[in-house]
Design a protein around this nucleic acid. Structure first.
Length: 381
DNA sequence: GTTCTAGAAC
DNA sequence: GTTCTAGAAC
C-alpha cells in the first residue's frame, strides 16, 4: 500500500460489480429421507405427504404445514394446516397456528415424526441458490489462486466524512484457510462452513452476519489487497470510522492464534496507512482497536477518529465501547498474541459498557448522551 | 449491530 | 408535560 493514495485521480476505474450477494434457505430433512428443499424468500411452500418429502404416513396431510422463509429476519414462518399436530420448539401446534422456526430449532411435520431443520446460506449468484451447500472442493477444485493486484479508485461523495475509494472488482476471490469464503471459476461466491452462522448456539440472527456481506460488496470497499479489505462503518461513530477485515474467516478474537499475528500486523498497518492518508490527520487523533465482545461476526479492526462527532453515536453502549477498556488497542492485542498465542478478555468486561459517561479528553463526567455530545463540541477544533 | 418503545427521570 | 434510556425484538 506504500505510496498509494487511493482517492487520487490516477486510480484504476471500477469494473462492473460481481453478482449481488443473495441468501438462500434450505429445509433439511434431519433423518436424511430426501435432499434439502429450497425455501425462497417470502414464498409459501407446502410440506406434507408427497413424493418429494417421501412421507407416506396417512396421518400427515398433503398440506400439513405451510412454510414461508424470511431472509431478512432469518427465520421460517411455519403454519400448521393439517388435522394432526405438527411440533416446533417443544410445542404441539394447533391447526392454523403460526410459529417461527429459527436455525437450530426442529420442526416435526406430524406427531413428532419427520424432523426437519432450516439452514440459511449466502451466495452471489442465482446459481448458488439452486443446489444445497457444497464443499469447498466441489466449488473450487483448483483453489490456489490469489488476488494479486491492488486496484483503488476515488469516489469522494462526502469530502468531510469519507474518502470512498472503491476497489476495482476482481473476478476471482481467494479461498480462505478453512473454506469459509470460496469461489468457483465462474464468478460466484458462496459462504460455506459458516462457523458462526445458522445453527450455532451463539447465532444472533442474520443481522450479525452483515459485515460478511458488506465486505464482499465492491461499493462498500474502500481498500483491498490479498489479505484484507477495508469498508466504512455503516453507522460511523465519528467523522472517520473504518473497519479493516481479513479475507480469512475469523469470527472474532477468540479464535485468533499466534499463526494470525502477521495478519493482525498487516491489518494494523493498513489501518495506520488509512490514518496517514486522511486529509484531516493533522487535526484529528485516531485509535485502532477491537471491541472485546463484538456484536457483528467476522473479526474487524476499528479505525476511528477521536472526535466522536456523529449522529450515529447515540447510546452509552456506543460511547463506552470506544472509551473504556472494552476497546482493546490493536497494539495490545498484537502483543498479547505474540506473548500468549491468544487473546484473553477479562471477566465482566461487558459491565464496562454500563459505566458512567466520561469525556475521553478531560475526563469530566456527563450525565446523558446529549450532554456528552454538547460537551464534546468544546474539544473540537 | 439498529430500531422501537415503555417507563424512568426530569 | 418532554427527554432519555434500557431492554426486547429484529
Amino acid at each position: 500500500m506504500s505510496g498509494v493514495r487511493p482517492w487520487q485521480s490516477n486510480a484504476s476505474p471500477v469494473s462492473p460489480a460481481a453478482g449481488s450477494i443473495m441468501r438462500v434457505c434450505w429445509l433439511v430433512s434431519k433423518d436424511g429421507r430426501h435432499q434439502p428443499i429450497r425455501l425462497a424468500h417470502a414464498v409459501c411452500v407446502m410440506i406434507g405427504r408427497s413424493p418429494e418429502t417421501k412421507i407416506t404416513d396417512k396421518k400427515c396431510s398433503r398440506h400439513q404445514v405451510q412454510l414461508k422463509a424470511d431472509y431478512n429476519k432469518g427465520y421460517v414462518l411455519v403454519k400448521q394446516l393439517g388435522i394432526n399436530p405438527s411440533y416446533v420448539n417443544s410445542e404441539d401446534l394447533r391447526r392454523d397456528q403460526e410459529v417461527k422456526l429459527k436455525p437450530g430449532q426442529d420442526l416435526y411435520v406430524v406427531n413428532r415424526l419427520y424432523p426437519y431443520t432450516i439452514r440459511f446460506e449466502e451466495g452471489t449468484s442465482d446459481r448458488d441458490t439452486l443446489s444445497p451447500k457444497r464443499t469447498h472442493e466441489e466449488i473450487c477444485p483448483n483453489s490456489s489462486s490469489k488476488m494479486s493486484n491492488k486496484h483503488l479508485k476515488t469516489e469522494d461523495s462526502n469530502p468531510r466524512q469519507y474518502h470512498t475509494f472503491n476497489s476495482k472488482s476482481e473476478e476471482k476471490k481467494e479461498k480462505t484457510k478453512d473454506g469459509h469464503l470460496a469461489e468457483n471459476s465462474s464468478n460466484s461466491v458462496t459462504l460455506v462452513n459458516s462457523s458462526d452462522a445458522s445453527g450455532q448456539k451463539d447465532f444472533k440472527g442474520m443481522w450479525s452476519q452483515g459485515l460478511k456481506v458488506s465486505m464482499q460488496d465492491p461499493k462498500m470497499q474502500v481498500y483491498k489487497d490479498d489479505k484484507v479489505v477495508v469498508i466504512k462503518d455503516k453507522y460511523p461513530k465519528a467523522r472517520f470510522h473504518w473497519l479493516v477485515l481479513p479475507w480469512e474467516s475469523l469470527s472474532n478474537l477468540k479464535v485468533v492464534r499466534r499463526d494470525h499475528l502477521t495478519l493482525l500486523q498487516h491489518m494494523h498497518q493498513v489501518g495506520q496507512k488509512l490514518v496517514q492518508e486522511c486529509l484531516d490527520t493533522d487535526t484529528l487523533k485516531f485509535r485502532l482497536g477491537y471491541h472485546a465482545i463484538p456484536s457483528m461476526s467476522h473479526i474487524h479492526l476499528h479505525v476511528i477518529s477521536q472526535d466522536f462527532d456523529s449522529p450515529c453515536l447515540k447510546t452509552k453502549k456506543h460511547w463506552n465501547s470506544f472509551n473504556t477498556d472494552y476497546f482493546l488497542e490493536s497494539e495490545d492485542v498484537m502483543k498479547m498474541v505474540e506473548q500468549n498465542g491468544k487473546v484473553t478478555v477479562k471477566d465482566g468486561i461487558a459491565e464496562l459498557l454500563k459505566l458512567p459517561l466520561m469525556c475521553h479528553v478531560c475526563q469530566q463526567q456527563q450525565s446523558t448522551i446529549p450532554q456528552l455530545k454538547q460537551h464534546l463540541k468544546k474539544h473540537l477544533s
